[in-house]
Design a binder for these strands. Structure first.
Lengths: 352, 352
DNA sequence: CTTGGCACTCATCAGGGCAGAGTGCCAGGA
DNA sequence: TCCTGGCACTCTGCCCTGATGAGTGCCAAG
């Protein structure tokens, strides 16, 4: 067995690669351990089952496949899937018809929240798995206008208009009372100085002005700056993820032990684990794939996660992806996630 | 509560009632068909199993209990549950400690959306079932202030300040361009005339003014009214329900056939069926209970739904409740739903 | 009206037998 | 040296069986 074997150190020979690929594909399709006979028929290699058994035995030794019990077929291990997606997988580009459908369903007219929800719905509908989208960081959005509305006494409502699809309201508690006209003047001042900047820049600009020219400013300007600082303060909503389509996970037999489903659904409501996972992807380029335990979260042991970041204005502002059983049709899922990320980015971009 | 079926002809005699009650209680607790022997031990009636069998046979004939198969114990039917909740059930009031905990977790400081979500979370956490809240109709909220912000060309952002915890933004497409000062004037006019009214009233008031005094109005007033009409237009968000805690449903064996769970979860994402159910409750007083098929929705055949409407300013504005298996601890669930509805109403009230 | 006794039904479980799928190993052939 | 057919072996899944136990319905006696 071993002597012949271009052992662990060697990259797999062509035959082994083709067989592994056929095996993964068949298992993904059928969901059942695949035996040497089936492989002999489907792999298109014109080999007898016996020879295939030998190769299988090698693959098993390398930890790429395993048999659930003595006399069942073989099943890919996480490592096997890894090798498969890394070097055996041929990704089929989506046909233009599909792309068009996706595009239509991501209507840039919608406000950001609805857009993000559509994206998640889309992912879960197309892939029949659970979709998720990390909502875009807001910092990037350019400030179009800021207004203040006096509510009562020291309470002021700040209205930040980011663009025609997004408006934020923030309620400020002030240290003294301001008159309507004072508020109006301060808004004018801020609009003049900050329009076009994004929130982060605006915050920085405000701080800079405060430091640099404090002495030269009149009290009105100073007050305006202070008010602006409050309005732009970083009320991060860090838990912002949208999940949809968890139902689909009920369909996969390998996840159907009630225990597993429970913890998976708990993960969706808790969000924390998945958030950290998503956040590790946010800096990466392109599609990322976590297979089984690779994600480092126990809950996802039997799942794979496929993610892709999306950009607005050339900057990564969020991630989206799907969660499903390790046994998923990667060659189809990967381009879907990829394209959806690009389309979401484009839709968000088109409105600035 | 729903129509009482004083079933067949005779009202049940005391013994039968006590036995039915014991049976339901035992079945709710244990989740297994209960036999004559167990009843003899637990019902505290000092009867032999044989006598109890006779009574059971009567109850079965009346359609209040049934046996899953020839030789299993008896299980309450939907009709049996109905009779149980209508006339046998003793509701335990929550102890004040529990009420206090509930109260603390419904913090009136929160904005409406968070408050509603807390309520749903609370329901699902306390009952270990799925919670749901129909978000309050907004109409009732008194308008504190309205402002217009010009976005671009004919686009105007209308800001409706309802109270310190709720602000609504609506983007209006106008038929001609208005200058900043025009918008300002119109806002002033509307604020003067409409402050303190709720949205529905404001809408009516606007329409009335338009009709009645059209000829007397100057163009500015007319424009203001038209603008107001757009701003108050009834963009009902009819799909506004919050569901939480669906995971809990995974725990109930009677729902655990994947098929049932699927359709149940689908109902949660689809929302439509549940919405119509909730809407039928919105006009009713007090706690309502739907057992099994009574709801008229196939999905809920094995579920019971317990709901209660909640009030703001003396008017019913929404409903909340829980969904769980028919076999639920009604004597506990009912007061929880009841109290939560009252607390949510109070929390919403406290801010006007 | 109540009760104990008895026969009956049904679900559940463990065990045995059998077919099918698949493997490992081996020896013979190219 | 590699490929292949053959063979024994192992495991699963299925069906049938019989035993057990829980619970019922009915009846006749108290």
């Amino acid at each position: 067995m071993k002597t012949t074997h271009t052992s662990n150190t060697q990259p797999l020979n062509d035959r082994a690669r083709r067989l592994l690929r056929a095996l993964v594909e068949s298992y993904v399709r059928e969901g059942q351990p695949v035996g040497s006979r089936t492989l002999a028929r489907t792999a298109g290699l014109d080999l007898s089952p016996a020879s295939i058994r030998n190769v299988m035995s090698d693959l098993e030794e390398m930890g790429l496949v395993s048999s659930p019990h003595t006399s069942a077929g073989r099943v890919p291990t996480a490592q096997g899937y890894r090798l498969f997606v890394d070097s055996l997988l041929e990704i089929k580009p989506l046909d233009s018809q599909e792309v068009r459908t996706l595009k239509e369903r991501l209507n840039p007219e919608l406000d950001t929240k609805s857009l993000v929800e559509s994206a998640s719905d889309l992912l879960s509908a197309v892939t029949q798995m659970a979709g998720m989208v990390r909502v875009p960081r807001r910092d990037h959005a350019a400030l179009v206008q800021i207004e203040f509305l006096k509510l009562s006494g020291r309470q002021v409502l700040a209205i930040l208009v980011m663009n025609k699809n997004e408006v934020q309201n923030r309620i400020l508690q002030l240290d003294r009372e301001y008159s309507h006209s004072e508020l109006q003047q301060m808004a004018n001042y801020l609009n003049e100085h900050l329009a076009g900047l994004d929130l982060r820049q605006a915050r920085e600009q405000v701080l800079r002005e405060m430091k640099a020219v404090r002495e030269h400013m009149n009290t009105m300007m100073l007050a305006a700056i202070q008010l602006g600082e409050q309005a732009f303060s970083d009320q991060e909503q860090d838990d912002q993820v949208v999940f949809t389509g968890q139902i689909h996970l009920l369909d996969y037999a390998e996840l159907s032990s009630v225990e597993k489903l429970r913890s998976l659904f708990e993960a969706f409501t808790e969000k924390r684990d998945l958030l950290t996972l998503l956040d590790t992807c946010i800096s990466a380029q392109g599609v990322q794939i976590f297979i089984g335990q690779e994600s480092g979260h126990k809950v996802l042991d039997d799942c794979s996660v496929v993610t892709a970041p999306y950009n607005v204005g050339g900057q990564v502002v969020g991630v989206l992806g799907v969660i499903g059983p390790t046994r998923m049709a990667y060659e189809r899922i990967i381009p879907v996630v990829d394209i959806t990320a690009k389309l979401l980015g484009a839709a968000l971009n088109s409105r600035n």
